[in-house]
Write a protein that binds this DNA or RNA. Structure first.
Lengths: 228, 228
DNA sequence: CGAGCTTTGTGAACGCGTGCACGAGTGCCT
DNA sequence: AGGCACTCGTGCACGCGTTCACAAAGCTCG
């Protein structure tokens, strides 16, 4: 299991599906399933079977023809490829509504991303406890990142403060950022940024709704009275 | 009317970028800018200029050569295309950590998606007030959806309850679902579903971190991290 | 031990989206 | 009025990702 075996780059599209396979495999293992076919995995994952096989083939040939994939072993291989064999502690910047929710949301820790710290510029928020973690002043970011060996930061501030938050994270030594603020962050080369904009997802749904109904308004202020 | 005849379909990739342009245009308008070039819009949006022009060309030829795009008019055109000329009230299923956060998060309402209602199966959660909205029992979903003319539902339940939540939403008449639960929902044809899995985004970041460091662990049994 | 069924792994074709280059239209300045 | 600088709109080539089809490989059973 020497990591010096040169890894060819895995297509981005495949990387974004591997976590899905991983989750399904974990569920199946907990159900007592020890072998699974690409067909079944595709069904559970909402994709088609050839795509599953091609995706998994980027990891190596870990399946057995005529049988399928050994669940336990495949979990290990995907975890290894994704770097999930150990925890990645994260620091959340911004203890507002969203930051509080993310801290309280157990899903991060369960999947290997424990919330190691929360910071905020607002002194009035410092000291309160969210999801078992005390909010600390943003100035302590460098010490926190260094002492807890944090590589990933989460920006959960309002848009106006997001760039500053990102700058501070980068200065503190973070190399990957998950950005929930609706702006495009400017970061130095080599820093990986992913953006999640909740409103954008709704707007995309709106487009398909609008196309479906031909523009009929569900709560058109012009016609029906939508109080409150 | 036939909704698909008057408009050629816009590529999905373009649809997912239109909200980004829309947000930037709104900001620029608030700053007093009344005309913007594709170059500038691309810079602010983190894409390249030809892509901006191609995206906008799907809406029609609303630019002026030699000048750029009139901000106000372009905002209107994108809003019209995305169906954002009126509000789309949404209902949130699940008043747990995530549901509470989404209800309190003002970003939805600001962007035209007011939280019209929150429901939960847990009777102990019913009655509490989140973000100005009282939590109501899940059985009232059909009445809520009908009376408030809701087309979009948000699933913010644990994974185990997500499929049931989706079924109830569909039965109540919702035609689009934004799913935060980490499972693939099964819905009838014609129902649009978009999925946001917060942990998946972190796992993707983990992959790039892992590739960068060659698999060095940041917390557990780590050698010295690469301090570049 | 071989036939037949099952399932993986992958080369190749196809389609979509991106990036590029350039023609076309507009405003400004002399 | 004419030239020039600027920017949009778009045809085209390229590359990535998806899909398909099929050969290779393993298991089961008689």
């Amino acid at each position: 299991m020497s990591p010096d075996r040169n890894r060819r780059p895995i297509p981005d599209a495949t990387v974004s599906r591997l976590p899905v396979y991983l989750r399904i495999l974990g569920e199946q293992r907990d159900l007592g399933v020890d072998s699974i076919s690409s067909d079944r995995l595709a069904e559970l994952g909402g994709v088609n079977a050839p795509k599953v096989r091609k995706d998994l083939s980027y990891l190596g040939s870990y399946g057995t023809r005529g049988v399928g994939y050994e669940v336990e072993y495949l979990i290990f291989q995907i975890q290894r490829e994704l770097g999930l064999t150990h925890d990645w502690p994260v620091v959340i910047v911004g203890a507002g509504n969203l930051g509080q929710a993310l801290a309280g949301y157990g899903g991060f820790g369960e999947r290997g991303f424990p919330v190691a710290a929360i910071v905020d510029v607002d002194a009035s928020k410092v000291g309160s406890v969210l999801g078992g973690t005390r909010v600390r002043p943003v100035d302590e970011l460098p010490q926190i990142v260094r002492s807890k060996r944090i590589n990933i930061g989460v920006v959960a501030t309002p848009a106006s403060a997001a760039q500053d938050a990102a700058d501070r994270l980068v200065a503190a030594g973070v190399t990957s950022i998950l950005n929930f603020a609706p702006i495009v962050l400017t970061v130095p080369a080599g820093i990986e940024v992913r953006k999640v904009d909740l409103a954008v997802e709704l707007q995309i749904l709106s487009y398909y709704e609008q196309r479906r109904t031909g523009g009929a308004a569900p709560t058109a202020r012009a016609r029906s009275a939508s109080a409150s």
